[in-house]
Write a protein that binds this DNA or RNA. Structure first.
Length: 935
RNA sequence: GCCCGGGUGGCGGAACGGUAGACGCGGCGGACUCAAAAUUCGCUUCCGGCAACGGAGUGAGGGUUCGAAUCCCUCCCCGGGUACCA
């Protein structure tokens, strides 16, 4: 029936070669990449000015047990970006490491006695194994782990730089104490008054702690958000967290003691409305103010209660206002009013000055308090709709000035305040009031931030030791640089008992003072792990440097990270700290990186059955299980196909199945096409068992091989008919996928475009293989002027999927040629599909591409769509009446508006809708549609 | 409460202000097979109709426009962040 040299007919999986076997393919290509160190990049390339460095980075994973599907999604996205950039000619840095210090390993140690290092190293080994199995294109030569001395040595070094630069402070502070973890927590780690990890109610304690002065950078941390491309909601979260408020600071003098109390207010325009004054329970002067007075006992009792109250309770905005009078008074500097002083827990010590002027007329909280304690309420801002003297709107009830109208939070004219301001709009008067305050020496304009300094000390074992020595003579002495690292000692007992477990390591704690050589003790607190992860991305740029954390010449060239990818859960803490670190180190001359992450992509969470995955719910999807079953290409492609990658998506086993089917189809078609038309002889790369395909080619077909090279892909020279359509589809896919990948992260639609292409290939292939060669033959014959009827009949036969008649001998030659042309188009389309899918499924596409072309897909430049295949000489014109689609008709691409209009108006299908109506207007969108407006 | 997102078939989701529902899943029907699996072909928003076709339709209600899922206003629901921040 067919020529003896033909490849066996396609039977979908009947032959070994056609079976998609990811378990066989994937390790083979991973071995090639590992062997050739394909993804390693030498910093020396940076010396070449022609090199365009791109830094792609996923957030540092915390290694615990096995990686989960969130990691899979993270690296699937990041790796797609890295591959895409490489193939666009960039030199890509794509490293990986481990955030290895931290509480889970330590808590495990407390429970089991296993050294945290051992547990951590075991987890790292497991993570590393999986990441390698995932085929992620990582430069493993730069791998790091924050718990290793060769890394934390430089964490300590940087800490000392910050210390020398005045950005580290040790001070006694009211801190969040987690009674379960027996450790201090940063404000950011307290969620609803409970420890982030332990869930225990947090207590407030006064302790000596280490702080990094991030507040010095508050303004810059806000301002520079404008210079980076991050999701707007992440920027907003950071802005809110930093919480900049503009207002004024004003001093109130205590009538009885003569002491001044400064307050911060965002509403200096309501100063004249203050009717009382409140201190926070933690305010250091509270005790002294009432000492020896009749109020002392009540105040003490109240403060005691307030301080021990649970934070959740204290923090609730709808909580009833409570407080106690201090029996003291302050004088309002602007009008001499005598204001009673109170202590009340609705005033917080750690915002502003811990003291407020209370303006119940224009503040809800002050108003609530005033109501509860029957304090006077004074209006100093006129409501917009209230009591306007020049009212001309009649006797509307809203115009009445009623006590219910207070508190009035809005804006309006200033009243009953000061002759200079009364009658002016409050917002307008603000600046003048600030000036006036300043000239009168009563206060001044001020900015206040919600952001607090970063508390970095932890009374825990498994962290980076703070490299400081306490000497009885010289106080706090930094460990000299040449004595770094201060190595974390081994201890017997990991359980914190209100102090760091390190305190028990006596041999280690007792040391000598670097200044005087006398006996001294080491600092026993360790650093918050967020410190470790605030600079790791700098270390990658010069990971093997043993003389410094990094060489700024190298680091500055790689930085900033061009594309950072991770979960939104780090939107505030990690990202803010890392930004602060870079700014501080830049100011200290260590570095020149103002913003570390130029572009940020936050991936959505993968849920299962609509819920967050968790062991306790038993709804965890293990990447390992998916990969064992379907291969990693399927897993990676699926997580990118689930939906827009920045959105949450629910895991679907059927969805994975669908992607697996798609890859299988691409594989079989590619394998068959490679066999049909043959790959190039220059096969290199991974050897595969039973590889005989390369030498097993049809010489007849080889003669008609395409010879046009388009962006590294062999393309048919002048395809026709269905072949042309297929080639068009391939170029359409190139265009679509390129746009979707280029900064849009529209991976789901990119993959669906490749699916469309493969579906088109499949149709064409079936038409050709299933006896339709008859049709092709006839088509070829008809080009040579043969009988047109034959062509028609044959084409009909093809439409049914059967060859109605046996091809004649004369037909066979023509059929061979037509067949070869079809296969050339198919091969081109498949080559394109593979090259476009490579960022998602690097193993399958490497194998298929090599079979199809004899070259390595990852070494190929990203393809470019050719305009001539994107354009058509006809398009489907949509014809609307009153905006409703009534007809569609093919129209020439270049047609003028007039031509399109008359074409549309002449359509028969339109007539019923035009009958008895007058055409008022015709809208013509060239290349798109005609809309007829009738009346 | 405030600040961000988001509401589109049975499901995940596509749609520069211009054909709503690409692609995938699921479902239904067919081919192949002794049979099944795998593969493959077709149909699949809803309502009416054998069909051609017609009508409705993107959370609800209004508006702008020749034309709105898309832009504007009001409201409802869901998710996230934040919350006595003066």
């Amino acid at each position: 029936m067919r020529g003896p040299s033909r490849a066996p007919p396609y039977h979908g999986g009947s032959r070994m070669e056609h079976r998609y076997d990811p378990q066989e393919i994937e390790p083979r290509w991973q071995a090639v990449w590992a062997e050739e160190k394909t993804w390693e990049v030498d910093d020396a390339v940076l010396d070449d000015p022609a090199v365009d460095p791109v830094y792609v980075l996923e957030m540092l994973p915390y290694p615990s047990g096995e990686p989960h599907v969130g990691h899979l999604k993270n690296y699937s996205i990041g790796d797609a970006v890295a591959h895409f950039k490489r193939r666009q000619g960039k030199t890509v840095l794509h490293p990986l490491g481990y955030d290895a210090f931290g509480l889970p390993a330590e808590n495990n140690a407390i429970k089991t006695g296993q050294h945290p290092r051992d547990a951590t190293e075991a987890s790292i080994a497991s993570f590393q194994r999986q990441f390698r199995d995932w085929g992620v294109s990582i430069d493993w030569s730069r791998e790091l782990a924050t718990h290793r001395p060769e890394y934390y040595r430089w964490t300590q070094w940087l800490f000392l730089k910050l210390l020398a630069g005045g950005l580290v402070e040790r001070r006694s502070a009211a801190v969040n104490w987690d009674p379960v973890e027996e450790s201090v927590l940063a404000n950011e780690q307290v969620i609803d008054g409970r420890g982030e990890r332990s869930g225990a109610l947090v207590e407030i304690r006064q302790l000596e702690q280490w702080f990094l002065k991030i507040t010095d950078y508050a303004q810059r941390l806000i301002d520079d958000l404008d210079t980076i491309q991050w999701p707007e909601h992440v920027k907003t979260m950071q802005r809110n967290w930093i919480g900049r408020s503009a207002g004024a600071r004003v001093s109130f003098r205590c009538e009885e003691t003569g002491d001044d109390y400064e307050v911060f207010t965002t509403r200096p325009d309501t100063l004249f409305g203050a009717t009382f004054f409140v201190l926070a329970p933690e305010h250091p002067d509270v005790e002294a103010l009432v000492a020896g007075t009749p109020q002392e006992a009540d105040v003490r009792a109240y403060v005691q209660k307030a301080l021990t109250a649970e934070r959740t309770e204290r923090g609730a905005a709808d909580k009833e206002k409570t407080g106690v009078p201090l029996g003291r008074h302050v004088i309002n500097p602007v009008n001499g009013d005598r204001l009673p002083m109170y202590v009340a827990d609705y005033v917080l010590m750690d915002y502003g000055t811990g003291a407020i002027m209370a303006v119940p007329g224009h503040d809800q909280r002050d108003f609530d308090f005033a109501q509860a304690y029957e304090l006077p309420v004074k209006r100093v801002i006129q409501g917009a709709n209230e009591g306007a003297p020049d009212s001309h709107l009649g006797d509307d009830a809203a115009w009445e000035l009623s006590p219910e109208a207070l508190p009035y939070i809005g804006d309006g004219p200033v009243v009953d305040s000061h002759p200079d301001f009364d009658g002016r709009h409050n917002r307008e008067a603000l600046a003048a009031m600030n000036d006036w305050l300043k000239s009168e020496g009563k206060g001044e304009e001020a900015i206040n931030f919600r952001l607090r300094d970063w508390l970095v000390s932890r009374q825990r074992y498994w962290g980076c030791p703070i490299p400081v020595i306490h000497c009885p003579e010289h106080g706090m002495v930094p460990v000299p640089e040449d004595q770094l690292p201060v190595v974390l000692p081994d201890v017997e007992d990991y359980k914190p008992k209100g102090r760091s477990p390190l305190a028990a390591a006596e041999d280690w704690v007792n040391t000598t003072c670097p200044t005087c050589g006398g006996p001294a003790k080491r600092e026993t607190d360790t650093l918050d792990t967020f410190v470790d992860s605030s600079w790791y991305f700098l270390r990658y740029t010069d990971a093997l440097n043993t003389d410094a954390p990094f060489d700024p010449k190298v680091t500055n060239r790689w930085m900033p990270v061009d594309q950072y990818i991770g979960g939104v859960e780090h939107a505030i803490l990690h990202l803010l700290y890392a930004r602060f670190f870079c700014k501080a180190l830049t100011d200290l001359g260590v570095l020149d990186v103002n913003e570390p992450f130029q572009n940020l992509f936050t991936q959505g969470m993968i849920t299962k059955d609509g819920a967050k995955m968790s062991k306790s719910k038993g709804n965890v999807v293990a990447p390992r299980a998916i990969i064992d079953r379907y291969g990693v290409d399927t897993a990676r492609t699926y997580v990118c196909f689930m939906g827009p990658p920045d959105q949450d998506a629910d895991w679907s086993d059927e969805g994975v199945e669908g992607v697996s089917r798609f890859l299988g189809r691409l594989w079989r078609l590619s394998a068959e096409a490679a066999e049909r038309v043959g790959g190039s002889s220059g096969v290199r790369g991974a050897a595969r068992p039973g590889d005989e395909a390369a030498g097993d080619r049809d010489p007849g077909v080889a003669a008609t091989e395409p010879n046009t090279v388009v962006a590294g892909i062999l393309a048919p020279e002048s395809p026709e008919g269905d072949d042309l359509e297929l080639v068009r589809k391939a170029h359409w896919a190139i265009d679509k996928v390129t746009q979707d990948l280029d900064g849009r992260f529209a991976f789901n639609t990119a993959i669906s475009a490749v699916m469309e292409l493969v579906n088109a290939v499949s149709s064409r292939r079936n038409a050709v293989a299933e006896g339709a060669s008859t049709a092709a033959a006839a088509r070829a014959a008809s080009r040579e002027g043969a009988n047109a009827n034959d062509a028609g009949d044959a084409a009909d036969g093809a439409g049914d999927g059967y060859a109605a008649v046996s091809p004649t001998a004369a037909d066979t030659d023509a059929a061979l040629i037509a067949d070869a042309e079809a296969w050339a188009a198919i091969r081109f389309a498949l080559t394109t599909a593979n090259t476009l899918l490579q960022p998602f499924a690097p193993h399958l596409t490497a194998e298929a591409y090599e079979r199809l072309t004899g070259t390595r897909v990852w070494e190929q430049p990203w393809p470019e769509a050719e305009q001539r295949y994107l354009e058509r000489d006809e398009f489907e014109l949509v014809v609307q009446v009153q905006g409703k689609v009534r007809d569609r008709v093919m129209a020439p691409t270049g047609a003028s508006k007039d031509e399109l209009e008359s074409l549309a108006l002449g359509r028969e299908k339109l007539q019923p809708f035009l009958e008895g109506k007058t055409v008022v207007k015709v809208i013509v969108v060239p290349g798109k549609l005609v809309n007829v407006v009738v009346r």
